[in-house]
């Protein structure tokens, strides 16, 4: 049996690999969507925060001698803390300005961070190996999956679901959403709006940090590892609808699969297919797949 002249094993294999790559897209675009949805800041520093997460994982191993599980907790916290500093020191003074200022500011911050890391750690980056428990592969017959990648999919799914529930289904989440709709009114109820926006940025940054830790055993940990990814992730967020959390998650996984399938049918297009989808989406549904028309 063949599908469009390709063996189904190959296609299934690529779908699975696409889901794995989609896990990173989903986690990162979820963080971006939270930050944009709640703060109206287009966070160009997201790729740099992701890179910081990967380096923080390396630091917990190389400097503190801790294992991967510790890194999985410490690194997102550290990146979140850095996010707090950025939010308090810079971002909060530009909330009332045009979106473009947030974009320029965070882009500048990203360049600064990446420049400093390159200065400190060198352009070639640092070694980070797969944690021992996840060494090895599963041979599923139609495709070979490294065990660690299976874990990444699971970790990403659980995290995305938890964050979505937190914001869409809890009281804290409802405060967050209300504060972005009408901050003045919400503060009249005695809710600390400034604290809420700060925590939204911290959450977004921590998610980027977590993606960085998850990525460290797969991709070479280098100061520039986030720069290529961030553009793809923005395309995912735009396609899903700016600010839509469920849109970001679903589009993240979906784009991973589309990219994987393109590698079967027409490999040369695999690096641009995401942008083609984004362009089509903007033409047909300018607000994105899950965005609300203004």
């Amino acid at each position: 049996m063949e599908i469009f002249g390709f063996p189904p094993q190959l296609i299934l294999g690529q779908v699975l690999i696409g889901l794995i790559n989609g896990s990173f897209y989903a986690l990162l675009s979820l963080g971006l969507a939270i930050i944009f949805g709640l703060l109206r800041v287009i966070n160009f520093a997201h790729g740099a925060l992701y890179m910081m997460g990967a380096f923080a994982a390396w630091m917990t191993q190389a400097w503190l001698g801790l294992n991967f599980w510790a890194a999985l907790v410490i690194a997102p916290l550290a990146v979140g803390l850095f996010g707090l500093v950025v939010e308090r020191a810079f971002l909060r003074s530009i909330y009332h300005l045009d979106h473009l200022y947030g974009l320029l500011l965070t882009f500048g911050i990203a360049l600064l961070i990446e420049g400093m890391y390159r200065y400190w750690f060198g352009a070639a980056g640092k070694p980070f190996t797969t944690p021992d428990v996840f060494r090895g592969i599963w041979d599923l017959g139609f495709v070979i999956v490294p065990k660690y990648r299976g874990f990444v999919v699971l970790a990403s799914l659980v995290t995305c679901l938890a964050v979505w529930l937190l914001i869409e289904r809890t009281r804290l989440g409802s405060y967050l959403r209300a504060a972005t709709e009408n901050p003045d009114l919400v503060s009249c109820f005695g809710i600390n709006v400034s604290l809420l926006t700060a925590s939204a940025y911290v959450l977004g940054a921590a998610l980027a940090g977590l993606s960085g830790v998850l990525a460290a055993p797969i991709y070479q940990v280098t100061p520039l590892m986030g720069t290529n990814l961030i553009i793809v992730v923005f395309a995912v967020v735009v396609t899903g609808g700016m600010g839509s959390l469920s849109g970001a998650i679903i589009t993240g996984y979906g784009m991973g699969v589309i990219e994987g399938l393109t590698k079967v049918f027409y490999p040369a297009a695999s690096s641009v297919v995401i942008f083609v989808v984004m362009a089509l989406m903007l033409l047909l549904r300018p607000a994105g797949l899950f965005g609300k028309e203004a």
């Binding site: 690529q14 690999i17 794995i20 790559n21 990648r149 991709y219 590892m225 290529n228 990814l229 994987g260 590698k263 490999p267 040369a268 695999s270 690096s271």
Partner: peptide, 10 residues
Amino acid sequence: VPLNASDYSS
């Protein structure tokens, strides 16, 4: 593989 592709699994 495209230049700067980060994923080589395929």
